[in-house]
Each structure stands twice: as C-alpha cells, then as structure tokens.
Design a binder for these strands. Structure first.
Length: 432
DNA sequence: TCTGGGGTCCTAGGACCC
DNA sequence: TCTGGGGTCCTAGGACCC
C-alpha cells in the first residue's frame, strides 16, 4: 500500500498557523515580487480566483471581497514543511518527499501491525494537526498514481475525514469513475483535450484502455505506466534517499528582478548571488556539478518577438562544489551572453551533470592540500551561515557595489509576514 | 507600471565530426 | 532531377508536475 500526504493550501495554511484571524476568511499568497497568486484558501477559490493569476490583474477583486494578501515567506514554509515531513518519517517505514507540501509513503510490510490503514492515517493526520496546525489529506492505494487520485477525492469530500483508502476493487472503480480524466496525475491540458476528443472523460475510461493504446497516445512508456498504475498494478516505487529528501539531478536558482537591469556590474552581482545560493544547495545534497548554465531573460510579455532568453552552457574542467570556482565560471558565462544596452528582467544559474562530491579527488595521484583546504572553507562557510542566517558571510562578488547592501534585483514584497520559526527577532510574542 | 520558481523529460534544427 | 548517414553538442523551447 502507498500513501500520499498533501498539505491543504500549504502556504496559506502556514500563514494561518501563526495568524488565526485568517481562519475562515479568503486568503491568497503571492509569488516573488508579489507577481502571481500561488496559494489560495478555499474561500479564495470559491471567489473564482485562479492559480497563477497576476496580482495586478485581480487586485480589484481582492479589494472588493476583502481578501487577505500575503507575500511569500519561504523561510516559514520550508521550516513548516520540515516539521510535517519529520513527523511522517518517524512513523512511516519509508517516505519520499515529493515537493514542499507533498510526500509519498511506502506502507508495505505494515499490514500485520495495523488493522485498518484508514484509522492509522487518521491518527497521523490528527498528530500533524496537533503538532503543526497544518491540515493534511491522506490518500491510500496500491499504486502511487491511485494514491494521488485517492488524495484528491479525500480533499473534495466536504466535512469528510480527510483520509481515503482504496483497498478494494469496488472502491477503486468508484474512485476512477468519479475522477475527470484531466485530474489524473500526468494528464495535463494537452493530453486532457486529446482524450476528450476521443470520448475518454473519466479516469475509469482511461484505465479501461490497453497498454499499447496508451503507449501510442500518451507519450510512450510514460503513458503505458500511467494506465498500468490506474489499473492497480504498481510500476513505480519510492525513489531512494537517506532521509526522504530527493537527490536532484539539477539545481537552479533563477529570479525575476524587481526593476529591469542592464549594467554588467548589476547583472554580474545578481548572477554571483544566484550562483552562491545554488552552490549552497549543491553542497547540502553532497554533490558537485560539472556543467554550469547562465541564463538572461528579457521581458517575455514585451512586444519583441522571441527569443526572450539567452543561455551560456559551460562544461567545467572538473566537477566542483566550490562557490569561488563556480563564481569564476558564471562570470565567464555571463560575459558570453550579455549585450550592452539590453534590458533584462530575469537571470539565473543552473547546475547540471551532478556527481557525488569528493569522487573527483580520487583522480589525483597525490592528496591535494589546496582542494582540501577549499572544501574545509566551504564547510565552515555553510556552518557560519546556518548559525547566523543566510548570507551572514558572502563572497564580495555577490555584493552589488562597494559598501552597499541594497540588492538591485530584489523586488517588493509588500505583504511580508515574519519568519516566525527561523529568525529570533521574528519569534511570536504573546502578552499575558 | 505590475504577470513566480524549481524540477524532469523531450523535441528539433543547425553546426560539426567521422 | 538527383545531391549519405549517423552521432554529439548547442540552443531554444514545450509539456508536465508541484
């Protein structure tokens, strides 16, 4: 049996956990620079507000209905996510953290120790609510795809228990018949339209197709796997990891600017900042990168025809996780694509060709003191920043100009809430 | 005026090589 | 009129997921 735990309207729920006055009211959370709506409470959904809608377009609607607006607060969401995942990892045999607000559970082998999966999941759900104030729903089924489907139905039952277990063929058939085909995991807009044209409207009708048909219609092996999983035959297990956190094949740090930038100096500082952040993520998962991509984008909504972005892909002489070295390559990449007089709206750094860190040193015949000292320096840097806050110690290349700490690429977050759980100064104060 | 970020996987044309 | 074939890399983009 597989489980899928999904935090309901996660970002909004995190804000509500520390601001109970937001309960029962329409709330939305905005993306970077207060750009788009990325999380909505049920009340906000009921007003017809859509995922990804630009804030400036729906502002009148938000005002009219008194919708509470929050800028995104990733320090808070990341920490709340860790708490939920940590609890699940302590009670389930295996977990796979699928995203910041979702994780798969592998419950195989647990059957002898629990009478009813439904009761067990309901207890986990209750515990998560008690410990974090984050509401979750749990779907249980013999495959990951069916667990996703069960979760979706659990969420839709008004006043339901928040748990749905598809442990019999009859329940699975019922669930498939009550799921529109476009809501199946892996069916997006394109495939959804295509299936409707062929008269396939529900997950049940899709599950009734043959594997060879799916192979032809839905992108080869991926489609065949999807149909098998809907039929209750598992073809994907949990992805392996030490603690549930997936080891990524690529790591990115990209950002739209608050104000458009043109100067090489500004863009260089922004790219250096993104490189530093990406390098930190890289070291956190114990990897080294052998390919670095620098990305510059113009305004993709502007009147200019595409292309709107340029990339420079650099193959590094050896895989590295050293911020200093990555900064050198990033700067060289930026030089290659930057054009004077061009107005840019976004930049980014992507790290690919990831290997396990340390491996590449085995290629050397003698121990490399220099490399060891650099590795120690990076470890110390990460330790200091973990203790005193991100960016407490930085490379000078990631500073905008001598003596200033104003980052020209950082935009407005008008409705920022405190980082309640990760910054001492932001700790919630309750007066008795 | 303002329209996110981080992933995975795939496609397709052109350059270049054998 | 006819004018190789196959491989890799580079670049830009699409589809899908959260």
């Amino acid at each position: 049996m597989y489980g899928l735990v999904d935090c309901n309207n996660f970002y909004v729920s995190c804000e509500r956990a520390f601001q109970p006055r937001l309960l029962g009211r329409p709330v939305v959370v905005l993306s970077n620079n207060d750009g788009c709506i990325i999380s909505r409470s049920q009340e906000a959904k009921d007003l017809g507000l859509k995922m990804g809608e630009p804030y400036f377009q729906v502002k009148p609607v938000l005002l009219r209905h008194g919708v509470q607006v929050c800028s995104s607060n990733y320090a808070l969401y990341g920490d709340m996510s860790r708490r939920v995942m940590h609890y699940l990892a302590s009670v389930a045999p295996e977990i796979e953290i699928y995203s910041i607000d979702e994780c798969f559970l592998d419950l195989h082998g647990l059957e002898p120790y629990c009478g009813e999966f439904t009761q067990l999941a309901a207890e986990w759900r209750r515990q998560i609510g008690r410990r974090t104030h984050i509401p979750v729903c749990i779907g249980l089924a013999p495959t990951k795809t069916l667990a996703k489907l069960a979760n979706r139905l659990a969420k839709k039952q008004p006043g339901g228990s928040g748990v749905l277990c598809l442990d019999s063929p009859e329940r699975r058939q019922w669930a498939l018949e009550h799921t529109p085909v476009e809501d199946v995991w892996g069916i997006g807009g394109q495939y959804g339209r295509k299936l409707h044209e062929q008269g396939i409207r529900t997950a049940a009708e899709l599950a009734a197709q043959s594997e060879s048909w799916a192979r032809k219609q839905l992108g080869g092996v991926v489609g065949a796997r999807l149909v098998r999983e809907l039929q209750g035959r598992p073809c994907q297990g949990l992805l392996p990891s030490e603690d549930g956190s997936l080891s990524r094949k690529s790591i990115a740090c990209t950002r739209s600017f608050g104000e458009p930038l043109s100067d090489f100096a500004d863009l260089s500082a922004a790219v250096a900042h993104f490189t530093s952040r990406a390098a930190e993520k890289l070291r956190r998962q114990g990897s080294a990168a052998s390919v670095l991509t620098v990305l510059l984008s113009k305004n993709r909504f502007g009147p200019e025809p595409p292309p709107h972005s340029r990339t420079a892909v650099l193959t590094l002489p050896t895989a590295t996780s050293d911020t200093g070295e990555l900064l050198r390559h990033a700067r060289a990449g930026l030089r290659r694509i930057w054009e004077p007089g061009t107005v840019y709206k976004k930049a980014g750094v992507l790290l690919d060709g990831l290997e396990t860190a340390g491996q590449q040193q085995l290629l050397l015949f003698e121990p490399n003191e220099q490399a060891e000292r650099r590795a120690q320096l990076m470890a110390d840097l990460d330790k200091i920043n973990q203790r005193f806050g991100a960016g407490a110690v930085r490379f000078a290349a990631a500073l905008p100009q001598k003596g200033t700490y104003v980052l020209p690429w950082v935009g407005q977050s008008q409705f920022q809430t405190p980082a309640y759980t990760t910054v001492w100064e932001d700790l919630l104060c309750i007066r008795g």
